[in-house]
């Protein structure tokens, strides 16, 4: 009996693990399967053209502008979030007293759980009106998306960067201080020492922004165009998928094209991750000779 239970338990554990692996394969398979019709019909046009008129008589499915919108949004948001996160993380790990550290830690954690739809609501009802006040012609635009996404991802960024700074051993920092270097230099040393971890943190932040759906759906404006200013509306891939998939005719070309957009999203994220990992690996090899 005891032996049977033991065997049964181990089998269940292994079986469930295999099921989870199968689920991932299933997700990929489904995504590819559903996007193949679009890929066949549209061909490489989907990435070469920016004209996205999925519901027209002569439908066009060019995703270039939406891809660029996604990338622009990711770039701008990272440029805002990462330095801010780094500054706050540096203050927290290097300068803050115990009390401040505790507060930063627990508050960032509490805020990081706020659902994105709530941040979307804040973007629409609080930041949107502000946009009009500072001269935007629409409350929902690139700038609003950047600001809202900053609110959403900053806590996440802070805790990631704190973690990577803490991965630098205290010895290194103390060694720098003992040699008579100033605290800034010691911090610079910590940043240098943690540069791989920080690059990895940046990748996680980028992926988070890239995949974020609700906020951009609610505040980015939704126009398929290349923004010429911060006040122009945009339509990143995730927003397009989320807003169109609800009304699309099942099995249609448009339906398939949305799956293709999902696949493109995964490919972008994979390229970013792999590039960063190659950088890290090469950097390590270079360091160790």
């Amino acid at each position: 009996m005891k032996r049977f239970l033991n065997f049964l338990f181990s089998s269940v554990v292994v079986l469930v693990s295999i099921c989870v692996i199968a689920a991932l394969i299933g997700i990929f398979a489904m995504l590819i399967h559903e996007s193949l019709p679009a890929l066949k019909k549209i061909g490489w046009e989907f990435i070469a053209s920016g004209a996205w008129y999925p519901t027209y008589e002569d439908a066009e499915f060019g995703m270039l502008y939406m891809i660029l919108d996604s990338l622009i949004l990711v770039g701008l948001t990272s440029v805002v979030v990462f330095p801010m996160g780094l500054g706050i993380a540096l203050y927290t790990t290097e300068y803050a007293n115990r009390r401040e550290r505790e507060i930063v830690r627990s508050v960032t954690e509490l805020i990081s759980g706020i659902p994105s739809v709530v941040v979307g609501l804040i973007g629409v009802l609080l930041i949107g009106p502000l946009m009009l006040k500072i001269g935007a012609w629409t409350p929902f635009n690139l700038l609003n998306a950047v600001v809202s996404l900053t609110v959403l991802t900053l806590p996440y960024a802070i805790s990631l960067i704190i973690e990577s700074l803490q991965s630098v051993s205290r010895d290194l920092r103390e060694a720098a201080l003992a040699l008579g270097s100033s605290k800034i230099r010691a911090s610079a040393m910590a940043i240098r020492g943690a540069k791989h971890e920080m690059l990895y943190a940046l990748v996680l932040i980028v992926n988070r922004v890239l995949g974020e759906t609700m906020v951009v759906l609610m505040v980015a404006g939704g126009a398929v165009m290349l923004p010429r200013s911060l006040f122009d509306p945009i339509r990143p891939l995730t927003a397009a998928i989320a807003s169109e998939v609800g009304e699309v005719e099942l099995g249609s070309l448009h339906y398939s094209a949305l799956f293709l957009a999902g696949a493109v999203l995964l490919v972008i994220s994979a390229v970013i991750t792999v590039t960063a990992e190659t950088f890290i690996r090469r950097g390590k090899r270079w360091l160790t000779g």
């Binding site: 989870v20 689920a23 991932l24 997700i27 489904m30 995504l31 559903e34 996680l204 992926n207 890239l210 995949g211 974020e212 759906t213 995730t238 998928i241 989320a242 998939v245 949305l258 799956f259 999902g262 999203l265 995964l266 994220s269 991750t273």
Partner: peptide, 11 residues
Amino acid sequence: MTSIPSIVYGL
């Protein structure tokens, strides 16, 4: 799986 965007899970 933790890095797949939620909208892809939706699809």
